[in-house]
Design a protein around this nucleic acid. Sequence first.
DNA 1: CTCGCCATGTAATGAGTTACATGATTTA
DNA 2: TAAATCATGTAACTCATTACATGGCGAG
Lengths: 194, 194
Amino acid sequence: MSLEYILLGLLRTPKSGYELKAEFDAGVANFWPAELSQIYVTLKRLTKRGWLRDHVEPSDKGPEKRVYQRTATGRRALFEWLVGEPQIGDERFSYIAQVYFLEELGTLEATLTFLSRLRERLARRLDALRATEHLWAKGSPDYPDQLPHDEFHAQLTLQLGLDTAGVRLAWCDDSIRRVQARLARKEKANARPS
Amino acid sequence: MSLEYILLGLLRTPKSGYELKAEFDAGVANFWPAELSQIYVTLKRLTKRGWLRDHVEPSDKGPEKRVYQRTATGRRALFEWLVGEPQIGDERFSYIAQVYFLEELGTLEATLTFLSRLRERLARRLDALRATEHLWAKGSPDYPDQLPHDEFHAQLTLQLGLDTAGVRLAWCDDSIRRVQARLARKEKANARPS
DNA sequence: CTCGCCATGTAATGAGTTACATGATTTA
DNA sequence: TAAATCATGTAACTCATTACATGGCGAG
């Protein structure tokens, strides 16, 4: 469901499936991953439904491409989605479940390994987002509060990404410290068994 | 994929599909929603694969139930998942896309409405998590740092939930303020057109 | 001429939702 | 006795991933 609207939204200007996939990989995938084949199928479906129109045109580089654009109906559908309820029930991420169940391994070392790996990944993601931000801030001295209208919402979402990634990285660091503290306590208890 | 492991994880003690659904609704759904019918199908699949064993037994209240428990193979599969890589690529939440595309409506009032609704929902979620925390803290004076081993990981995940919900609510409040500031600036500009 | 990127698609399979069907037991 | 809750499942459909097939074009 959401993929349809995300594609519709990205098609502010006409694009091909391949180009849309690149946009996914360059950011959207952080909150909604999609495979190329699924994008193609969904574009076909939306065209059949009358929300998109397509035409074939030559590419700068490589073979011909099929370029999609919104129809009036498609634009209306997108707008209805936007003025509707926030989609808050479809969130999913599974590493939290891994953390929860790690308890069963009975060894805090495994938890520590897991959290370190997670920390590594989260830090990389945060770095990428911060790089985007710096680039943007360098280009527009008005960043972030005097940005022109057409960049304001993009900044809001970047900020949400930054905040979320930041808090999770901090949680990771804090959790690692707490695990280490527990391990230290356990060692002390072993050295000096009551 | 993840649903399989989540069910496997929840089956620390034997449970029926119906009981598992209740556990989902009481928390797990915040990061991995699942319908009852999907739970039943997945339990059957896991049983066929040899990761679970099932038997029918009478219920305290209501008709007979089919109770599932892990096999040795299932336990092994769960443990492999836990010592493997953090599942960080399958995150999805779509309201961030709505915020991003709201720009196209061209009216900050729509954004304000959207953010208020979102704020409302996020606040309710945070309240629920905080209630859980207070209840827990009241019951165990050792909360959160001297908790017994079998509660430590649960506390870590609760903390991640609290932190995430908290930062997003704060982002929402901040964004609402920023939108209002922009609206105020616009009004001023309209009243005194240069 | 080969490798990597550009580009689109189908097929098979798996995962997930919605709707439907059934029926027991408990509580008001 | 009616409504709520307990309990399990199937069917139809939608959504998503993985694997496979095909081929053009440009750089080295």
